[in-house]
């Protein structure tokens, strides 16, 4: 019995494949033709455009609003730049060009640390009587301030630049910044949005918690005017 089974199954398959031109068979064939056609069409359209064809409506709306925001911002940039260009074209004396260059020089000078700056910001004082604060903690503080958008920073009486570094002296003791010994307590002056800076330092597990965990005292004072007078030599 079981020996006959494969033979019967094969016969069944053969019979299945034998063409019989009845109306039903033709209809089935037509439907299968339609199916094959549709499969190819669908596969092709999926390959042609995979980015947006499968995206749902809300995703598309999100993408669209992103794009329109960006184009709005870029249009604003265009307006600004066109204004600059017009004012440059208008004056023959070079007044506007000079003013523009001065403005840029001032911005870059502040960013590079070669010019003094004032503005709203915070004053961070880290009092470390036990001497447990090491360079890495101060570096963390500095990076946290930078991440939170501080534009100008001063540590002790040293202006912070892009290549500022902290070092522990070999025998321990007070941390050095850019090779200069700091006078404890460590004092950071940072210009930026005071609220954002304070929040950044106070996050759970953040800089202030670390400082307290080391047995040192940290305090933050928000000021409407912080004057940073230390400069770096160009």
């Amino acid at each position: 019995m079981s020996g006959e089974e494969p033979g019967r199954a094969a016969r069944g398959l053969l019979e299945l494949l034998r063409p019989r031109a009845t109306r039903g068979q033709l209809a089935g064939g037509l439907l299968c033709l339609l199916l094959g056609f549709a499969v190819v069409a669908q596969v092709r359209s999926t390959q042609a455009d995979t980015t947006f064809a499968t995206a749902r409506q809300d995703e598309l709306v999100g993408i669209l609003s992103d794009l329109s925001q960006r184009s709005e911002r870029l249009r604003g940039d265009i307006r600004d730049l066109e204004g600059t260009r017009d004012s440059l074209a208008r004056d023959g004396e070079g007044e506007a060009a000079l003013a523009e260059a001065r403005r840029r020089a001032a911005t870059y000078g502040i960013l590079a640390g070669t010019l003094p700056a004032t503005g709203p910001g915070i004053e961070v004082t880290i009092d470390d009587p036990a001497g447990r604060i090491r360079a890495d903690t101060l570096l963390d503080t500095l990076q946290e301030l930078r991440d939170a958008g501080a534009e100008v920073i001063q540590v002790g009486d040293v202006r912070v630049g892009v290549n500022t570094y902290f070092t522990d002296p070999p025998g321990g003791g007070v941390v050095e910044v850019d090779g200069r010994r700091l006078q404890p307590p460590y004092r950071f002056l940072a210009i930026g949005d005071p609220h954002t800076l304070t929040t950044a330092l106070n996050i759970p597990g953040g800089v202030m918690k670390t400082v307290e965990g080391l047995g040192a005292g940290g305090s933050i004072v928000q000021r409407q005017k912080i004057a940073i007078s230390a400069v770096r030599s160009p």
């Binding site: 299945l16 494949l17 034998r18 063409p19 019989r20 031109a21 068979q25 033709l26 089935g28 064939g29 037509l30 439907l31 299968c32 033709l33 339609l34 199916l35 094959g36 056609f37 549709a38 499969v39 190819v40």
Partner: peptide, 10 residues
Amino acid sequence: MIALLGLVLG
């Protein structure tokens, strides 16, 4: 058979 043919043709 016709169905298979139809599929291939499609």
